[in-house]
């Protein structure tokens, strides 16, 4: 029984992952913005076998509430073994290029809010001497590209932060897991034409579930993104800057 807190719990990837935990009977604490979505998700997870499902409405931009919500989750579940952070948006790159305020806001959502949550969670798990922190980053954070470098910046910074945190928490036996999905067919990408590289959230969730159980550090999902990004990262910058990616 892993007592699990999920931030951004109504995102498609979080729901698909939570269903796997629910079938194991794990107690779950869900955090998201929309109470209707939270209710529907909580009922679903309860029916699927979760021994306890609680939820709380919160916007991740309310940094001042982060600690209280984490403490509330810990109290309601009677402890905390595992956290999945899955909230995020896909910024409109073109709009961000014209508006720094929009860029700042996107970085607040996709990067700074997560740093805030991670700071509280790291201290909690460090003092406890166990636990798992799994965070949704993205392959987009592996290299900056003109088509979505604002999103890439947020996810790249997040990946780097998690790398440092993993290093820091290793002696405390806390697992820090960076999840890097490729293209996933979710509401965030509803308007994109889908091709061969696209994966369903259930596939990504199965990889996250297995990766967390095995204590992996970095999960590329589906697996081929590890090799694809290895190639993309290996392209020399003088050549890369000429590509339209």
């Amino acid at each position: 029984m892993n007592k699990t807190l999920i931030i951004g719990a109504t995102s498609a990837i979080a729901i698909a992952t939570a269903r796997l935990w629910a079938s194991d009977g794990d107690p779950l604490y869900l955090v998201a913005r929309d109470v209707g979505k939270l209710e529907a998700t909580a009922n679903d997870l309860k029916t699927r076998g979760s021994s306890q499902v609680e939820f709380q409405v919160m916007d991740v931009l309310e940094h001042s509430r982060h600690l209280a919500v984490i403490e509330e989750a810990t109290a309601r579940l009677g402890g905390l073994d595992r956290v999945l952070i899955a909230h995020g948006t896909l910024p409109d790159q073109a709009a961000c290029q014209a508006d720094i305020e929009l860029s700042r806001r996107e970085l607040e959502i996709n990067c700074l809010s997560t740093f805030s949550l991670l700071t509280h969670l790291a201290n909690l798990f460090e003092s406890k001497g166990s636990g798992t922190i799994a965070v949704l980053s993205s392959v987009a954070g592996d290299r900056g590209r003109q088509s979505n470098y604002l999103y890439g910046t947020a996810k790249g910074a997040l990946s780097l932060f998690l790398q440092g945190l993993r290093n820091r928490l290793y002696p405390s036996q806390v697992n820090v897991i960076t999840i890097k999905p490729g293209f996933v067919d979710t509401p965030m990408t509803d308007t994109f034409p889908k091709g061969l590289l696209w994966a369903q959230p259930e596939r990504v969730a199965a990889d996250i579930y297995k990766g967390i159980n095995k204590g992996r550090d970095i999960i590329y999902t589906p697996f081929f993104w590890r090799y694809l990004m290895w190639v993309i990262k290996a392209i020399p910058e003088p050549l890369f800057k000429r590509l339209s990616l």
Partner: peptide, 9 residues
């Protein structure tokens, strides 16, 4: 990389 299409043609 995919580009945004006109929504749902």
């Amino acid at each position: 990389m995919p580009k945004t299409s006109t929504a749902f043609p």
